[in-house]
């Protein structure tokens, strides 16, 4: 029906218009060259990593990069903040830990089931909250994160309480994953996959809809973009990614405490996305690297990390509101002209 109503007399095609239109499409180089460079760097990195400690540092950066990319889809593209993402991460981690340790599940099925449960939980929260305007999601997820930490701490018979619990190695496709050098390619591969998938998403009709609804919600709705549905789906997506990363990190670390779900961890993730650059995939990678290294650099300020993260977050929002990577990119473009 709508096909028939296309008034063919509106606008006409000409080779010039077609050429001008196609010139606006992001080119192969612009889209994929940085990813290829990243993949090469990650492939070569083991050549210069001297020992397991440095592998561990890089793995933490890589895990945080995936989390920040997923969270940035929500913050940077939907304009919604989740202050409880560590809660989803923690549920994934403990879901895997409990199911594999106490119930003898295989690691992949524990990971899958934890991810699905977290997805359902996030969907329920979003259904209730996202219909409301404003920053209710931030508050609801803040509360949710706190509840998760409390439950993980109190259900000591399952979780080991505040002392934490150990998690067995992950076995998948007959492989046993243990040790930094085995896990490194897994996390490196996940980052590349996350960058590619998020890059595709942002350039797809869904990504365009997300960016559009951030710019003008009413205009987006009028062209048929179901803004509530998009926010819900992106929230669920980012929560599921957090759960999956939680499961993998639990197996990698071999030992987890309720700290993995702490408010501090949630703030850290938000800071990575915002400082690196909202609505910027590479910004998230950069933010993850910067803020994962920070605790080592700030070792003297133990106990004040949350405060320092807060200061960095606020300073970025005031001085570089677009975040570090988009601001630099803009500067470089201007220089280049």
């Amino acid at each position: 029906m709508s096909e028939a109503s296309i008034p063919t007399t509106i606008g006409r095609s000409s080779p010039e218009t077609t050429a001008a239109a196609l010139a606006t499409a992001p080119g192969f180089r612009a889209r994929h060259l940085p990813t290829i460079v990243l993949a090469i760097v990650l492939a070569l990195l083991p050549l210069v990593l001297p020992n397991a400690y440095y592998y561990d540092v890089v793995i933490r950066i890589l895990a945080n990069a995936v989390l920040a990319i997923a969270l940035n889809l929500l913050i940077g593209y939907c304009g919604q903040i989740s202050l409880g993402h560590a809660g989803f991460f923690g549920l994934g981690a403990y879901g895997s830990a409990i199911l594999t340790t106490h119930y003898d599940w295989t690691a992949p099925s524990a990971l899958l089931v934890s991810a699905v449960v977290v997805g359902l939980l996030a969907w329920l929260v979003a259904r209730v909250i996202l219909r409301l305007k404003g920053h209710y999601l931030a508050m609801a997820t803040l509360g949710l994160g706190i509840i998760v930490t409390i439950v993980l701490t109190n259900e000591a018979s399952l979780t080991g309480g505040p002392d934490g619990m150990s998690v067995g190695d992950m076995r998948i496709f007959g492989l046993r994953l243990y040790g930094e050098k085995v896990w490194y390619p897994v996390f490196a591969g996940l980052v590349v996959v996350a960058v590619v998938l998020a890059g595709n998403l942002v350039e797809s009709p869904a990504g365009r809809a997300l960016r559009a609804l951030h710019g003008s919600e009413v205009a987006a709705r009028v062209v048929g973009i179901d803004t509530a549905s998009f926010k819900t789906r992106v929230f669920v997506l980012s929560a599921v990614v957090a759960a999956i990363m939680g499961s993998l990190t639990a197996h990698y670390l071999g030992f987890i405490t309720p700290q993995v779900a702490s408010f501090h961890k949630s703030v850290e993730l938000v800071t990575m996305a915002v400082v690196g650059g909202m609505a910027s995939i590479w910004g998230s990678v950069f933010g993850a690297a910067l803020l994962s290294l920070l605790p080592d650099l700030l070792a003297h300020f133990e106990g004040f990390e949350t405060v320092i993260f807060g200061v960095i977050l606020v300073a970025t929002m005031i001085f570089l509101p677009r975040g570090i990577v988009p601001s630099l990119a803009r500067l470089l473009r201007r220089e280049g002209r």
């Binding site: 595709n200 797809s204 009709p205 990504g207 365009r208 062209v223 048929g224 789906r233």
Partner: peptide
């Protein structure tokens, strides 16, 4: 928008 596939997974 309405004429295109706007699924998140499809987009990815």
């Amino acid at each position: 928008h309405l004429g295109l596939n706007s699924g998140l997974l499809a987009g990815m």
